Computed example of a mutant assay.
Amino acid sequence: MVKVLVVLVLIFSVSFAQINKTENKKEPVVINADKLEYYNKEKVAVYSGNVDVKKGNFNLKADTVKIYLDEKGDVSRIYAVGNVYFQQENKWGKSKEAEYYKDKNLIILKNNAEVHQGKNVVEGDEIYYYIDEEKAVATSKGSRVRSVLFPKEKEEK
């Protein structure tokens, strides 16, 4: 159990530490989609149809992405649904839904969540990652959490 949690923390911490480094460089977020609807009163932008979000070396794809803004116009929450897929270097994951809460610095992958790093895999109904705490929790309601962990290969000299 401890090894599984260590692998989960490593997978997520490396992925999202890289995102935070990218943000510090003030790289732009580029969003491509078939359609954008912005609701000023609700402060929400809804991107739909083959949504592709890129920031540095991080990429997120989904059928629909809703970006919720706070009163200052900053992102407060992101909700992605439908064929959610993210990738960064040798790490990638997928689920049917994903949410990001800026105030909690929390990412949640929901409904058939999977996270891969190299050959290693963690699967569950939901995977929660608390970025500041570098803490990951995988849960499953109908079945059990599943991990496939490969030993590290020795470097050849």
Rank of each mutant, 00 (worst) to 15 (best):
Y128D: 07
N32P: 04
E23V: 09
A98N: 05
W92Q: 12
V4W: 03
N111E: 13
A136M: 10
K3Q: 15
D34F: 01
M1V: 12
Y130L: 11
K91R: 15
K43Y: 10
K141P: 04
E126M: 04
E153D: 04
S140F: 06
A98R: 03
Y68S: 05
L69P: 06
L5F: 03
K102G: 12
E155P: 05
V65G: 02
E114S: 13
S13C: 08
E37Q: 13
A80Q: 00
V4A: 15
K35A: 08
N59T: 09
V84Y: 04
K35T: 02
Q18W: 09
H116V: 04
E126V: 02
E133R: 09
V53H: 06
S48K: 08
N112I: 08
A113G: 04
V14F: 07
N57H: 10
K41W: 06
N32H: 09
K41M: 02
P151T: 03
K61C: 01
Q87M: 12
K96M: 08
V121L: 15
Q88A: 12
F16Y: 13
K21R: 14
K141T: 05
Q18V: 04
G73M: 07
K72Y: 13
A98K: 01
I131L: 15
Y129F: 13
K35V: 03
V122T: 00
G56Y: 07
T139M: 09
T139D: 11
K61L: 11
K152Q: 12
N24R: 14
A138I: 09
I131K: 13
K91A: 10
D70F: 14
T22N: 02
E156R: 08
I131H: 10
I127V: 13
I19Q: 15
G118P: 06
Y38S: 07
I19N: 14
Q18F: 08
V14Q: 13
A138T: 02
G49W: 05
I67K: 01
D132L: 15
V9P: 00
K3E: 14
D125T: 04
E126A: 02
N50V: 02
V137E: 07
K61Q: 09
T64N: 04
P28Y: 12
V14A: 13
L109F: 11
E156M: 10
F150D: 01
D52M: 02
K55G: 08
E123C: 10
Y129D: 01
K135T: 09
V81P: 01
K141R: 09
K154S: 09
